[in-house]
Design a binder for these strands. Structure first.
Lengths: 217, 217
DNA sequence: CGACGCTTTGACAAACTTCAATCCCCGTGG
DNA sequence: CCACGGGGATTGAAGTTTGTCAAAGCGTCG
């Protein structure tokens, strides 16, 4: 299912109005199929991206196939511009999606060097903040805390208590540093505790936000 | 023991020559005792720091006392300037140490706005890179891989195969997302495999770098 | 309606943690 | 210089959490 409902991007990930406009006017609109690569690990980074519809994951693979997902990106959010020269993670489409792509140098010229630099700095900082939260989650939280954190974080980011998951269990697991089986068990447990309700595997609603927040720590 | 041998900081963490000079001339030299706080979580971030001697850790606490260490910093390296407005991690002295402290605004004026912005951008990016490596370590590596990664990473950063650890086992454990017992067991295992040699708990030498690199993945 | 892929569940195994005891530095004081 | 004391480190045994493997369930899409 394509993630297509419109909503505002969280402030920390949105372009400022001017650059946003530039991007919409000058950017190239590209469509990617589910699981298609948008850019690769160790690829040169001279493009910036913005999700129009659908959703994106960034991930890194180990030689034996283990995978860590860095983050997910939703409509209105930018990604790929935190790299200095080369990407450290690859980016792939979570589902069929439309992405606005623009040369960094073009945006730099169009938006002005100062505005561009400020924008990149803000984006990099918000990326770092989010990565540091993720670090605490992976280093010190239990499986149930990780899943609770994920659900509440997603709901906050999407500004809604009822969310459609754009990713499957494997993507959640690779984001949370768990296996799909453990993720599934924790979700079952959260439902049994009447903290969240699921309608199918992809649609959930937070039934008890205080309890969920408590479980996420 | 104070970590005082002189060496060059890795390029990615060093100030460029001009700013470095400014910092040495204008910065305030402060000494911190072991475990003393340099700045606190959620404190305003308007100062930048540079390690002169000793070593520093950044860490975040959960309400129940679980701790995640973000990174360690060594002589010549800067820290604390990646925050936009507030620190997300606190910083503490790993051992008695000397830190150069300077107001960000002062460096901004002295070094020039452009040079300052570039410097902050470079520092933030290197911080993000390191944090992303850390993410993979915490999310997808086994205990032995984590310890191997830590040792080889430390040796690379210090540019030597023989290193004195400035931190105790608890700090290593909180960086690696493990317990001190597990860290200790993995170290014992690495010694038994003749991959590293320890002289006391704080002094080690890499005996088989290829094997260690393989174990770190 | 049927088949395929994803998710859930169960039983078992492995990895890591916990708790407790012992050891070993290392610094101090006799 | 050596004995002693203490804090951190190591080791062991048992427990818990999470992973693995296998089977069954469910939904979605032809």
């Amino acid at each position: 299912m394509i993630q297509s409902q419109a909503f505002a991007a969280p402030a920390h990930l949105a372009l400022d109005a001017g650059a946003d406009d530039v991007m919409a006017r000058m950017g190239l609109r590209m469509t990617f199929a589910k699981d298609e690569e948008i850019y690769g690990q160790d690829e040169d980074a001279d493009l910036i991206y913005r999700v129009v519809s659908g959703a994106v994951r960034t991930s890194r693979l180990m030689s034996d196939g283990r995978r860590q997902i860095g983050d997910f990106y939703y409509p209105g959010e930018m990604f790929g511009l935190e790299a200095v020269k080369q990407h450290r993670f690859s980016a792939e489409a979570l589902c069929d999606c439309v992405i606005l792509v623009l040369k960094a140098s073009a945006l730099r010229v169009a938006a002005g060097e100062t505005a561009y630099d400020r924008m990149v700095q803000v984006a990099t900082n918000s990326e770092l903040d989010r990565t540091q939260d993720h670090l605490l989650l992976l280093g010190r939280k239990s499986a149930s805390e990780r899943v609770a954190s994920f659900l509440i974080g997603l709901a906050d980011r999407r500004r809604s208590d009822a969310v459609t998951l754009p990713m499957g269990r494997q993507d959640m697991a690779d984001y949370l540093g768990l296996t799909i089986e453990t993720v599934s068990r924790m979700l079952t447990q959260l439902q049994a505790a009447l903290v969240v309700e699921f309608a199918g595997a992809r649609q959930f609603r937070i039934a008890n936000r205080a309890a969920l927040a408590r479980m996420a720590d």
